[in-house]
Amino acid sequence: MPQTDVSQRASTGPRSQWRPALPLLLPAYLWLTVAIFLPLSAMAFFSFMTELPLSGKPWAFTLANYAAFFEKSFYAVLLRDSLRLALEVTLWCALLGFPCAYVLAKILKGRSREAIFLLVILPFWSNGLVRVFSWAIALRGNGLLDRTLNAILPFQVNVDLMFSYPAIVIGLVHSYLPYMVLTCYLTLQAIDDSLIEAARSLGASRFTVLRRLIIPLSLPGLVAGSVLIFVPVVGSFMEPRILGGRAGTFYGTVIEDQFVAVFNWPLGAALSFILLAVVLIILGAASPILKRAA
């Protein structure tokens, strides 16, 4: 029976696995192609030009935009500052997010867990710009934070965090904390309670259980959350600009300037690709550690 032969081969062959999967994969890949690959290629193209072709001026291919990064230490210093900012924000998110995820996953049950969960993901539901401006209201001198503290504390304090580095960190941590809470929550949730009980029955204190069992087992979540936060924060521009003012000049804001203020798209594009390369190099260098953790 040759017909059944063919159908049998088709059902086991590698090509047939793709046929039913294709309608499911195609929309996502088409979208990714249109939304990411095409604009990114256009940007890559622009980054090698002297002028934006849309402006009507004559243009030529050049490497000058990339060379600009290396000619002035200005960009490298800004990039270093941005990396430091991202590292700091990621660390704060881990310090604040992990305990919160632990309580959600291991201590709270039922209704109270749902309520706290809602509070954690609330920042996702509000508009980013609204969020940042709310912080501006809270952090400025004679603002919400200043007044509240002075109402509670018996002595006079002067809190004006607006247009400062801490303000940027506060705003960014607020925006990105949910990523850390959610990724850590997922890995903590997967840790069987009997493991913790077994460790305690062997004489381990709660701190030992945390250090030798819970943190190692939830490392994949911590790593995933850190990557999710670190990468966008390196290039962030909205929070630094609004909350940082003059203190808020970072690599991301300089790129933004090239696009919206100076209209030097080729330079902006080149700076973006240098950032992408640096981030990829950092992730690549860290990948042995990341792999072991995951």
Binding site: A198, S201, L202, G203
Partner: peptide
């Protein structure tokens, strides 16, 4: 007395071996 200070040994139904 909490479990960690009772000096007992326990075997769990699912063994609870530390996977890491």
């Amino acid at each position: 007395v909490p479990v960690e200070r009772r000096r007992i040994g326990m075997v769990f139904q699912n063994y609870a071996l530390f996977p890491n």
